[in-house]
Design a binder for these strands. Structure first.
Lengths: 230, 230
DNA sequence: CCTTGTACGATTGTCTGACAATCCGACGCC
DNA sequence: GGCGTCGGATTGTCAGACAATCGTACAAGG
């Protein structure tokens, strides 16, 4: 009888909030790659205990945004080109797997792909913030992986994208051609709706390779400027 | 000149050892699914501080072997059939992706598939412990995923496997037909070496479906016996 | 009978403070 | 240049404390 099924209350622990704040700071580029995240300094700055900071740092490390070296502390992850390539091939595997199940997937999942594209196009036209654009963009790719029907694969893809989110943020801050991006995804979905799986796979592969190249150049620029003005 | 590249020294923190011990206890079936893992009790039992236990529990939760409910503590994960199905479809995606890249993969990766098969066959004949058999078996599947060439996909597959390791252990303890298993994998690799990717894909799909069915029945048996003698 | 309010023990989440182990860099010595 | 040593900084781990929250039992009230 009672129809309160949809009600959820997200309760937030201190650790969650600390992790969220740190995540934001990292993704907004407020701290450079390689910066050490000292426990005591963070604890004093944020007004929480060191153990709380430790737990939050463990979360970030698990997400790949930071790296822990035993007895040497946690540092903001430095993305090397190999890691970017690795993540991109992994994403390609997952998204292509979803794409190939286009016809077997739930209609709801297919529709959420189209919906994500609409949101992205809308965000691109009403010049939203880079962060919002990135989020909208990524939700398209997440929707592709969701076509596999496996919630865990979706989570895995999300953790992969989290790892390169830093590089993605850089790219999106540099690049202003969101319109081209929208066009690429629109073409992808049109091919899918037309039933041309092979064509869509080619389009997606091309898109991902392009994205990888963009990230690599963005990283290269960052590391060069970092070395010139240390 | 210096050829000490291969030397590594494994750092063992207390947290690691606690997590390892708990993992072993869970996988050996020493604690039933759903059992609460109380921090104070564990701390006293293992002679370490509560904070250390907390960190170790966070590791297990991240691995999926345990589940945390806020303010209610950590419990040994109860595998429901949906979760098993989800993990199995995810594994199928990853392993099929590796399999389809058989020809493009490194020869070293192909060879490690064959090597894993040899180890498994050897373990099956010299009746090794169930735990060793499971490990050898899983390393075959890990080698398949490694064919994708992405280290991260390998890690993801491993975390997926960890989640159902509990059910796998149950299956391997019940089942005694390791010879059949060896035969199935041997057929798979022969198809691959013969270049018959489609045949290999069918064989692998069939094998994974069979494994899923086994796990589901094992889980069903466990839950029934659990309810009859609570 | 069913609902509401309350008291209590158990457990978690977080804080404080402490200390040994480890790492890093500098300094002095051979 | 290589080697031992010292000191500061930081982490890893520990012990103890307390409020917040949960589960349950129990009393009160319609």
């Amino acid at each position: 009888m009672s129809s309160f099924e949809t009600l959820r209350l997200a309760h937030s622990s201190t650790v969650d909030r600390v992790a969220e704040e740190l995540r934001r700071a990292l993704c907004d580029g407020e701290v450079e790659a390689g910066t050490p995240l000292r426990e005591i300094a963070l604890a004093e700055a944020m007004g929480v205990a060191r153990s709380t900071i430790r737990e939050a740092l463990a979360v970030l490390v698990a997400e790949g945004l930071a790296t822990r070296e035993p007895n040497r502390g946690v540092h903001v992850t430095e993305l090397d080109p190999d890691a970017v390539h690795d993540v991109c091939t992994a994403r390609a595997v997952l998204e292509l797997a979803g794409l190939r199940r286009w016809h077997q997937a739930d209609e709801a999942d297919r529709e959420s792909c189209r919906e994500a594209l609409r949101s992205f196009a809308e965000a691109a036209e009403s010049d939203a913030s880079p962060a919002e654009l990135t989020a909208a963009h990524l939700s398209i790719h997440a929707a592709l992986v969701a076509l596999t029907g496996s919630a865990r694969l979706g989570a895995l893809a999300e953790s992969l994208t989290a790892e390169i989110r830093l590089a993605l943020a850089k790219v999106d801050r540099i690049r202003r051609n969101a319109g081209e991006q929208v066009q690429s995804h629109r073409a992808l979905l049109e091919l899918l709706d037309a039933g041309d799986l092979e064509g869509a796979a080619r389009e997606l592969t091309h898109h991902l390779e392009h994205a990888e190249a963009s990230m690599l150049t963005a990283l290269d620029l960052a590391s060069q400027s970092g070395r010139r003005q240390p």
